[in-house]
Nucleic acid binder design. Structure first.
Length: 400
RNA sequence: GGUGGGGUGCCGGAGCGGUUGAACGGGCCUGUCUUGAAAACAGGUGUGUUCGCAAGAGCACCGUGAGUUCGAAUCUCACCCCCACCGCCA
């Protein structure tokens, strides 16, 4: 969540940031008002408690002041109830405040401000058959049985595609390990606070599958961040770089009718994801590093792509800045998102209480960043861009 | 699923319901001593929050949440988590 001091002391900055995202700035006024009320009521409660604590120091004074204490107790009961209620409402509003948008993020509603900053690779297939048609014909993909067994938006990967998928995940993991990331295979079910602390709740709650009192992760990112929970790193140990592999689960609520064919948008998919924890001074540099990693990984499969700087209206709540890599999909005749990397500033570090001790000995919140190394979407792009005129697919040697 | 034992400060570990924010030990920091270090000795060492320019004062925090009480780390209830053993299963 956002630093409350920023909301208190720089409400205009917060309002600006919210309106850049297309949100309602009334939220800020609501919090400020609730905060004001909260401070008043806290003052009242504390004064009453102080009085009580003084009078109950010894049994004698407690007995002498029995009547007064009874009165205090009753007043306190009312005041404390009010305190709780205001605090709860303040928290509710506060947790709806998204991260401050970075200055160099283009401003615009929705996806309108997304800006392509770089195009890489030659497009060999301007058009082509869709991955689901290619793969289904070759018996690499069975969405029909998946629909029978699990419902819409699930897949059976079969034969060479099943193997290519595993190899892609494996390569992605090794690629990151070679560059200094520590490999992690996290749990895929998590308790609610993991989502709250990483900034996925309350915003993305509808997009999450719940299993009894737990939730299936939509990415391993929060699980990797949780490894930093309540830890104070020394500056020399940063950046902490982790790479995780996990299956990911998303309801894809609100995307009815979008990408319904094939396996571009699935309820379940596998992903290799990196997370970095670093200092505020070095987080921008780290963000560029993650982006370069993604580009390097994508480029080795000869997939044409573009890098997009995501505009304010399309930014996730915990992110202050985000880049997407979009790979060329011949069947759609356009670039589609395969990778994403976000700098979340101290938004998530605050939630998980991830700190570091600087060279001056002071403790402060770290910055967290995340990025995709590979998902099934990259496999699809590889497949579509390697289709042959005869309807076959020539997989790159690394994935065979 | 069953039975039992636990969750206290950086760590270990105490804690008759009333000057306990918390004994004691370790660690860490600072001094004294030493050429330096060790040892020894002395002192210090939590977090959050409210008010305040500050100095400082208050309040809260002993897994979480409710409750009993004039007063709770200490009593009651619920929940969460951890550990051990048994059963079942991969």
């Amino acid at each position: 969540m956002l630093d409350l001091d920023i909301i208190r002391n720089q409400p205009d900055l917060v309002r600006q940031s919210i309106s850049k995202r297309g949100g309602n700035t009334d939220l800020v006024d609501g919090i400020l008002e609730l905060d004001k009320q909260w401070r008043i009521i806290v003052g009242q409660a504390e004064a009453l408690r102080q009085q009580r604590n003084t009078l109950t120091q010894t049994k004698e004074s407690a007995e002498q002041n029995a009547a007064l204490l009874k009165e205090i107790k009753e007043k306190l009961k009312v005041v404390e109830e009010e305190e709780r209620s205001i605090a709860a409402r303040r928290l509710e509003a506060w947790s709806l405040v998204p991260q401050i948008v970075a200055d160099d993020v283009p401003v615009g509603a929705g996806e309108s401000a997304n800006t392509s900053i770089k195009t890489v690779g030659m497009i060999r297939h301007k058009q082509g058959e869709a991955h689901e048609e290619l793969m289904t014909r070759l018996d690499w993909l069975d969405t029909e049985t998946a629909a029978y067994a699990s419902g819409a938006r699930f897949r059976y990967l079969k034969g060479p595609a099943a193997l290519a998928h595993m190899k892609l995940m494996h390569r992605a993991l090794e690629f990151a390990i070679e560059r200094g990331f520590q490999p992690v295979v996290p749990p895929v079910m998590a308790r609610e606070e993991i989502f709250t602390h990483s900034g996925y709740f309350p915003f993305g709650r509808e997009d999450t599958f719940a299993v009894e009192d737990r939730f299936l992760v939509g990415t391993s990112e929060p699980m990797l961040l949780a490894l930093g929970h309540n830890r104070t790193f020394s500056e020399s140990d940063l950046p902490l770089r982790l790479v995780g592999f996990s299956s990911c689960f998303r309801r894809e609520a609100g995307s009815y009718g979008k990408d319904t064919r094939g396996m571009f948008r699935q309820h379940q998919f596998d992903k290799v994801e990196v997370v970095s924890i670093t200092t505020p001074e070095r987080s921008e540099e780290e963000h560029q590093f993650l982006l370069s990693l993604q580009e390097e990984f994508t480029a080795q499969f000869d997939v044409p792509y573009q890098v997009v700087l995501i505009g304010s209206g399309d930014l996730g709540a915990p992110a202050r800045k985000k880049y997407d890599i979009e790979a060329w999909y011949p069947s759609q005749e356009k670039y589609r998102e395969t990778h994403s990397t976000s700098n979340c500033g101290d938004f998530q570090a605050r939630g998980f209480n991830i700190k570091y001790r600087g060279s001056n000995g002071q403790e402060q919140y770290a910055h967290s960043l995340n990025g995709t190394v590979a998902t099934e979407r990259l496999l699809l792009a590889i497949i579509e861009n390697n289709q042959k005129p005869d309807g076959s697919i020539e997989l790159p040697s690394q994935l065979r």
